Amino acid sequence: MYLEHVNLVVSDVPAMIHFYQTAFPHWTIRSEGDDEWHGKPRHWLHLGDDYQYLAISNHGEGQNRDLDGYQVGLAHFAYSVDNLDSIVERLISNGYEIAKPGAENPFRKNVYFVDPAGFEVEFVEYLTDIPSERNNDL
């Protein structure tokens, strides 16, 4: 079992496409369309690869939760990646800033960015295949 997709409602779809294709250059728009959501027009698309994707649509209003606050809502989501350094380099060279560095850990390295819609995204590279080491709290 694995997580297939996350559905994000945003105000700027092109900015989201740029961020995620910068992180994952192999991602493409798998499908897209226009329809209504509770009487409001929306454009939606699925951005990803053959196994996972983000469902992104533009019918949102307002701002995301304050990531420094205590509001109920999504705190962050994470991608396990093979080469964290290359993702960080691509994002930084395209003007995205690290939101916070990950914790020091001998079995993984990670970093957090905030995407254009205000969602915090963690990228983590595991340096071991042993589950007890990958999931430790060092």
Rank of each mutant, 00 (worst) to 15 (best):
69 G>A: 11
67 L>E: 08
49 D>Q: 08
41 P>Y: 01
97 E>F: 04
111 V>W: 04
69 G>Y: 03
47 L>P: 02
114 V>H: 10
32 E>Q: 15
49 D>Y: 09
96 Y>A: 12
66 D>S: 04
59 H>N: 15
105 N>F: 08
125 E>T: 05
88 V>G: 03
28 T>M: 08
28 T>A: 11
96 Y>F: 15
94 N>Y: 01
78 A>V: 10
29 I>C: 04
53 Y>Q: 09
33 G>F: 00
21 Q>C: 06
66 D>R: 02
43 H>T: 00
125 E>W: 01
93 S>Q: 12
40 K>V: 07
101 P>W: 07
76 H>S: 07
118 G>A: 05
81 V>D: 11
103 A>L: 13
101 P>A: 10
124 V>H: 03
108 R>M: 05
79 Y>W: 14
33 G>M: 00
58 N>G: 02
104 E>M: 11
56 I>Q: 03
17 I>A: 05
114 V>D: 14
89 E>C: 06
97 E>G: 05
55 A>H: 05
124 V>M: 09
110 N>Q: 11
102 G>R: 12
42 R>H: 14
97 E>N: 10
121 V>F: 04
29 I>H: 05
108 R>T: 13
54 L>M: 09
63 Q>S: 15
125 E>M: 02
14 P>M: 08
117 A>D: 03
11 S>V: 07
67 L>W: 06
100 K>F: 12
104 E>K: 14
81 V>L: 08
120 E>D: 08
15 A>P: 07
119 F>C: 10
83 N>T: 03
50 D>I: 05
19 F>E: 14
122 E>A: 06
93 S>A: 15
112 Y>D: 06
33 G>Q: 02
82 D>C: 09
48 G>K: 00
96 Y>W: 12
61 E>V: 11
95 G>M: 10
25 P>T: 06
32 E>I: 01
83 N>P: 03
83 N>A: 08
125 E>N: 04
43 H>K: 01
110 N>G: 06
27 W>E: 07
14 P>V: 04
63 Q>G: 08
60 G>I: 01
102 G>S: 10
47 L>R: 02
25 P>N: 10
99 A>V: 09
114 V>T: 15
41 P>L: 01
69 G>S: 13
121 V>S: 07
120 E>R: 15
95 G>Y: 07
74 L>K: 05
29 I>K: 02
70 Y>R: 08
44 W>D: 00
67 L>Q: 15
67 L>A: 09
103 A>T: 14
15 A>V: 10
93 S>P: 01
78 A>F: 09
48 G>S: 09
37 W>Q: 09
121 V>D: 07
110 N>W: 03
96 Y>L: 06
16 M>Q: 13
56 I>G: 02
100 K>I: 13
